[in-house]
Design a protein around this nucleic acid. Structure first.
Lengths: 339, 339
DNA sequence: GGCATATCTGGGACCGCTTCCAGCCTGACG
DNA sequence: CGTCAGGCTGGAAGCGGTCCCAGATATGCC
């Protein structure tokens, strides 16, 4: 059967429900919102009418009246669309969704890459399309932070931007995690420990580097060598090559991401070093890839789902008018075979 | 400085703009919507006022008046939240976002897993919270399909559900792709070709299996053996083990996903078979993992971003009241080292 | 029984925008 | 110069809710 495109069916309105129940619209509204001051009889009548007519309040109308859309945005800044394919974001989203499930808010996902994407986001915020926003993945001076700050909407940051300290953010304990990793390498008796950092234009990159330095210095060692990567596998490989060149006697490496560790691993093996015998490797993140390398990576685990969840909870609090404290989520060392 | 939670600033309204421009609200509305019948003078005055006041029309109010929210939903049915971490979904989302960027629609992401999640989705649809919906990842009789069909909203399916033929869907050419893969193995001179299928409770699972059978039968071979997997790496490994058990002389395998192929690969190597010398392996999907196995997988490439993009375009058409045709996206064979 | 108090009720004013419509003005034409 | 067809215009009625408030009704107390 040839069937027309599904056009929205007309839903019953509050007025119709009220009429059917033989009460005023206000009364009907009250029972729907479980407001006080409504008699048993009225409540029953309205509830019956609602059930019979299959009434559901229109979101938009309600939003207009209450000035609440019931929608929060998660904005991801990514120059490269491919970057979003990183399991990291998927995990964040899973966490966010889980937390939202306990509320009656919905999730609007904004991949704001290009100028066009950004202006769409700006517009969304200024037209009051969402009640609040969560921001992820910020390098140095991400244009998104400006956009979002100007909008004057409840905002939660996932990780800290570099150029200012947001009042509300959630992040993993990057410094602590990096220290854990480095301390572990030290405890293994390694001394010529190098690090492959993330981009130094990001807070994460710097924090993990700082953790490495602190751990080294604390135990009287001197940071042996550093190469900057970009959190990707190929970036890690490149960094590893240059390190191997400049410091061929290195005996351990802390990579600020598993991706980079994986790249480094490949280069090391290709260079004939055995891992962990010749060189011990520790990564950071523990998002699946760490288990799939050969040998599997010892790494610092951060719970990205928890990150998403806590960001969401925080945002919900903010929207409710409270002022929750910012949060730093613990990380832990996961021992596998690479160190 | 202690700073209060960012509460939304009050935005100017259309009335205020109109007043400032010295015209009626209707006139102002007309220039904003580029409607005809507005004089040069009026337009200029209004446009100036808009610029001066930084006016942006309130989304919600407009939505109420036009009965259009400007939001479309992407619903993903996943029993296991982990499943969403599959890069597949990330790619879909990237495609969807890219297509939406050309419109003024935004993306609402619904991970509708639990009963709670599903009822939230139901509610969203019936309360007219979105203008249309895209549905992904459907096994046999996914409850989502029912929910969505009842809602009577423009709907596009990504892949076909098993229990009915949706009027609008986009999918990859699974049968064709599987044939490509199998034909390739045949052309390599293999004859004892087995397949690890996806769940037979999914259309994708069945279609790829059908492609395999068709290719075999077309060339006069008999389908050698089949084991059902679940598209995951561990599932693929398990299936491989049982196949190796029952048909130790197999010389090629077509796995209906790269994940399963990766699992199978591991089992094969552990069993002392060399790939591709003893056993040739072809996967399906080509979503990154195929390049990272050792040896890298020959596989059938499907463009998941294109899938997302086309779904979105189709939905936009539907919302606009047109009736676009359904689409089947081509797949192609990518030769690497495993076959 | 009278009066204060608490509970319930419906009317109506919003929320901010779109859109229909009747009235006005203009210019063109006969 | 009268008439008619336009283009412009602002008023007002909507979209479908929330919520304040004044009035009506029920309860408690002396």
């Amino acid at each position: 059967m040839a069937m027309a495109a599904q056009r929205p069916r007309r839903q019953p309105t509050l007025d119709e429900v009220a009429e059917r129940a033989g009460v005023s619209r206000s009364a009907a509204s009250r029972v729907i919102n479980k407001a006080p001051h409504v008699s048993r009889a009225t409540r029953d009548a309205v509830e019956r009418a609602i059930k019979e007519m299959g009434y559901l309040p229109n979101r938009t109308a309600r939003a207009l009246a209450t000035q609440r859309t019931g929608i929060v945005a998660l904005a991801v800044s990514h120059d490269d669309p491919e970057l979003f394919a990183d399991p990291f974001f998927a995990q964040v989203i899973v966490g966010v969704s889980a937390a939202l499930e306990e509320t009656d808010l919905h999730l609007l996902l904004c991949l704001a890459s290009s100028g066009r994407g950004r202006s769409r986001l700006t517009n969304l915020l200024h037209t009051r399309g969402v009640d609040g926003i969560m921001l992820m993945a910020l390098h140095g001076d991400d244009p998104l932070t400006h956009i979002v700050r100007r909008a004057g909407l409840p905002t939660v940051y996932g990780g800290r931007p570099l150029d200012f300290e947001p009042q509300w953010y959630v992040e993993s304990d990057n410094v602590g995690g990096a220290r854990l990793a480095t301390d572990h390498l030290i405890s293994l008796g390694r001394t010529r420990i190098v690090t492959i950092t993330g981009p130094m234009s990001t807070d994460v990159g710097r924090a993990r580097h700082r953790g490495y330095r602190e751990a080294m210095i604390m135990t009287g060692l001197t940071p042996y060598a550093t190469a900057e990567g970009d959190f990707t596998e190929t970036g890690g490989a490149a960094a590893m090559k240059s390190l191997l060149d400049s410091h061929p006697d290195l005996d351990a490496i802390f990579a600020a991401s598993d991706n980079m560790a994986a790249g480094a691993l490949r280069v090391l093996l290709d260079a004939g070093r055995s891992v962990p015998a010749d060189v011990a490797v520790v990564g950071f993140d523990d998002l699946g890839i760490a288990e799939r390398t050969d040998p599997p990576l010892t790494t610092v685990h951060q719970s990205v789902q928890a990150l998403g969840q806590e960001m969401t909870r925080m945002l919900v609090e903010l929207i409710a008018g409270h002022e929750p404290p910012s949060l730093i989520l613990p990380t832990k060392l996961v021992l596998r075979d690479s160190a």
